[in-house]
């Protein structure tokens, strides 16, 4: 086993075990922190694949931004009413979940087995940042700008919806 294989297994474990814990955990704040660990694992996998820029984008956006906002949202909601509801998952729901998960896993396994994987020779990955930047500002400049505009619209829309209307006061 070489270095990157070991790291791959470590990162896979960091991704999957917290993911399982997310499903099993009943405390919503703990759950958020398991999600944090899982997202970190995904970022690690990206970096192992040589996509360091993408990996740290994952850290910046998901961990630094979205996770903080999720925690923020949880903390601002009423602790007693929302967070302390435990043991609501019934046996039937649990069974359904297990069945669906097993089916999905089977399907994925089949796909993995049936695909003819080509093994590429390990290469030294070139720096991605410059290429990502160039691609965004040349070939993909229109989609890039469109996404920016879309995000701006989303931002305005969110602000509008969250706003209390004057007649309510």
């Amino acid at each position: 086993m070489d270095w990157s294989t070991i790291m791959w297994w470590v990162m896979a474990a960091v991704t999957v075990i917290p993911a399982v814990m997310i499903v099993l955990s009943k405390d919503i704040v703990r759950l958020a922190f398991w999600l944090l660990a899982s997202l970190t694992g995904v970022a690690g996998l990206y970096i192992l694949l040589g996509a360091d820029f993408l990996g740290f984008t994952q850290v910046l956006v998901y961990i630094g931004g979205i996770m903080v906002l999720i925690l923020f949202g949880i903390m601002m909601t009423n602790r007693d009413a929302v967070l302390m509801r435990r043991g609501e998952t019934t046996g039937g729901a649990m069974l359904t979940g297990v069945v669906i998960a097993a089916a999905t896993a089977l399907a994925l396994l089949k796909v993995v087995k049936d695909t003819k994987w080509k093994e590429a020779a390990p290469v030294e990955m070139p720096a991605t940042t410059a290429r990502v930047g160039e691609a965004l500002l040349t070939d993909y400049v229109l989609p890039f700008e469109l996404v920016s505009v879309l995000l701006l619209i989303v931002l305005c829309g969110a602000a509008y919806i969250a706003r209390r209307r004057p007649e309510e006061t």
């Binding site: 944090l36 360091d52 740290f56 984008t57 961990i63 630094g64 931004g65 903080v68 923020f72 940042t129």
Partner: peptide, 22 residues
Amino acid sequence: DLDIGLFYLAAVGSLEAIGVIA
């Protein structure tokens, strides 16, 4: 000397905040 050193800094800059939130 990461190729994306500055970006890395921006990314990990908020990790401490998560500890504080916790």
